[in-house]
Design a protein around this nucleic acid. Sequence first.
DNA 1: TTGTACGCGTTATCAT
DNA 2: ATGATAACGCGTACAA
Lengths: 329, 329
Amino acid sequence: MNIIEIAKLAGVSKSTVSRYLNDGYVSEEASEKIKEVIEQTGFVPRRQAQAMRSQKTNLIGIIVPKISTETAARVIEGITNELSNAGYEVLIGNTSQSIEKEFDYLKVFKNQVDGIIFMATEITPKHYELFEQLHIPIVVVAQKVKDYPCIVHDDYHASKDAINYLIDKGHRSIGFIGVGEYDVAVGIERKKGYLDALEEQKIEAQSEYIQIGDFSHESGFNLTKHLMSLPKPPSAIFAVTDNLAIGCMEYLKENGYKIPDDVAVMGLGDIKIAAYMTPGLTTVHYHFQTMGAKSANLLMQLIQSGKESSKNYESNFIFNYRLIERDSV
Amino acid sequence: MNIIEIAKLAGVSKSTVSRYLNDGYVSEEASEKIKEVIEQTGFVPRRQAQAMRSQKTNLIGIIVPKISTETAARVIEGITNELSNAGYEVLIGNTSQSIEKEFDYLKVFKNQVDGIIFMATEITPKHYELFEQLHIPIVVVAQKVKDYPCIVHDDYHASKDAINYLIDKGHRSIGFIGVGEYDVAVGIERKKGYLDALEEQKIEAQSEYIQIGDFSHESGFNLTKHLMSLPKPPSAIFAVTDNLAIGCMEYLKENGYKIPDDVAVMGLGDIKIAAYMTPGLTTVHYHFQTMGAKSANLLMQLIQSGKESSKNYESNFIFNYRLIERDSV
DNA sequence: TTGTACGCGTTATCAT
DNA sequence: ATGATAACGCGTACAA
């Protein structure tokens, strides 16, 4: 079922049908006949053909590390809502945390979509190389990127505020559970926030209090075990993600420590589970869905501006956060 | 950058380049030149053009009620992993629980993708009408559908087993928190499981124990409040989703009831939070990700079989479940 | 207002 | 082995 068949059935030429579809000038009688035929047949113009002709795909590609992650899902929720309102459709690239797949999608989406939203963890030179080869705008979410537009949370201050909160509550020995520095936002920024907060309060950072693992749950568990086996265990533990904090709480609870009386625990991100833990996890709320919406709007704006690339985009967006006091501190 | 330019740069015709790209016979020297040019330029064939010519889009459309829902995210995770291994890309339609948007996506995807996976809640006659108009296979997930392939969990028996488990634990007065019957799987099947389990154990169902709300968290909270204000409150409560069960637990905990001593609580679905509640929520595990993977495989199989529609597909898939004993019963 | 003819990038057919 | 050409479905400049 194509536009020619519709034209035949309506007794007009395909140009007339095309005009009808695209708000062009069509006489009333032709208009009605076409309308009727289209309703009967349920005809919808093929988007691939439209894209071919117009050089606009009306498609946006999203690349995410793992779609079943709560944070990714929330970002995507924000993105898709905005985009579908604007008539865009969304192609999704789930990389399962594989950097190779990130590269693949960056290549595959290249001339298949009008723009890309890239939810990043680690940014390597190869990434920049691929960004260069893009002839469409790209917006990076969750990691700072040089020369390209990006949307991030203020990881440094969020972390710093969290530590200051712990210090305010009287803690002087604060354990830190972090992740590798390949992830700048989570691995470096949040650690720096921790270190700077201590320094400003004249508390000497102790290297044995600083534990680095991966993003897994078990990592939170095991590193807490290690912290608590120290000669002088910390009175509070800050984990750079809620997921880690939950692993941390598990260890403490299983081993009879009272939270927050024996050990206070603080996370970052405010995933849904945080509210349901016992005690409720004190953490920092991040606005992932709003962030997704913002990235979508920014991307659409870049597309409409007609630029071939979003390189050298001047301003970035740093999202605010909100400290959530619950009962684990 | 298109195939013609590559051809020019390599000093051959575009047909030769096309053959090079598609495993055709090309002389070694031509081959090498083309390879070189493609590497330099980073050329990738435009998928829209390929689709145009081949009548295959290599795209699959997924329609989900709400992407940021844990169950949906897990289903999508399963789907995308399977599909991307097979070289398909995924177009996502997030309907935000709007039935109108479901219709929209069913129309829009119609001649834009090679097949559709539809995660459904409510199936109306209008849905069937749109299914009819499809000229591509569709697989329905999470709801039974007449004449079309679908992949579901065994809601009836899952629910029944849950109730039997409660009965085994000595409960005779079991409250039920359900949802509207527009959702057949959750609203009807799970309720039937409850009723039949009681009947088989010669326990008379009491209408005041059966409370119906929506899917929200608050619903679980409020309906529990109502159940507990009954002259003779139940000794156990079964909620048809974990989300409702969690709302239920919240009410009980806030009001000083001990779980499971005063009231036992059981859910269904085994969302992540369930494991972290205190006490851990006893529930029934559903295999959402595997379900997604299965639906993807089935759809690919249908596509490869070359049928224009998946209507009258004979066999459906009913997934098993697993009872998870934790501490709320 | 309507219709004709062409082009978008690719693949398939057919000669050469 | 290679190249010219048609075809896919649609939009649009141009002619009528």
